[in-house]
Amino acid sequence: MIMNTIEYRVKIEQFQGPLDLLLHLVGKARIDIEEIFVSKVTGQYLSYVASMDSLSMDRASEFLEMAAMLVYIKSRMILPANEFDEDMEEDPEQDLIARLKEYKAFKDASGTLKEYEIDALKSCYKLPEEVAFPNEKVVLEEMTMDALIAAYQEVLARVPDTKPEHIEEVAIHHDIFTIKDRSRHILRSLTDMGSASFSSLFSGASSKMEVAVTFIALLELMHENLVSISQSTSYEDILITRTREAAAV
């Protein structure tokens, strides 16, 4: 068995899959595919699979599935047939033989295609050419203004009327609070006291919209470098102070 293992230690990359490996073993044993189950090929296949040391799970599972199938077929041949087996419509043995033959047919054909390929690669083809002729002109013959208008009206007639049947009315309210107004409000609060606390800016706010717009106005003022903010300790109210630039304005 150990001898066998070494004998069949062939690189897994060499084979396209379990069917390819089986064909290789059949060829090595110099037997017909039909004789596969009365030969030693099953044992050889199993010892081969056992010798695979490092293999990705994906590939290993393909080889192991086939190993299970081979063992199952062998066991069916040794054990007396039970009722369950007789009920089965497919004969796994004949099924596998048919699959092997089909695979062999395609493998052989791909071998011939390979020869075709070697020959065909000696011919060169040009890429599709972008055909551009010099001095290409568009000539409009017998074209009159009437014809043009007629053509236009034809197009209009073909285009379906896309006017919506029902237009929903949506009221768009005038913005009560603008960033400009709120900026002025902030700057005014600062002018009176030199600085103002963050919370005092929002103390008189009547709506969420006012708070939001005032906040954006504050960010805008900071961006323009007209105010600076400071905070003595965490969670303390933030102090907003006019910058020198703002004083100059």
Binding site: Q16, G17, P18, L19, D20, D58, R59, E62, M66, R99, E102, Y103, F106
Partner: peptide, 8 residues
């Protein structure tokens, strides 16, 4: 195709 080749 995979049925014929026996691999992914």
């Amino acid at each position: 195709i995979e049925q014929v080749r026996g691999v992914a």
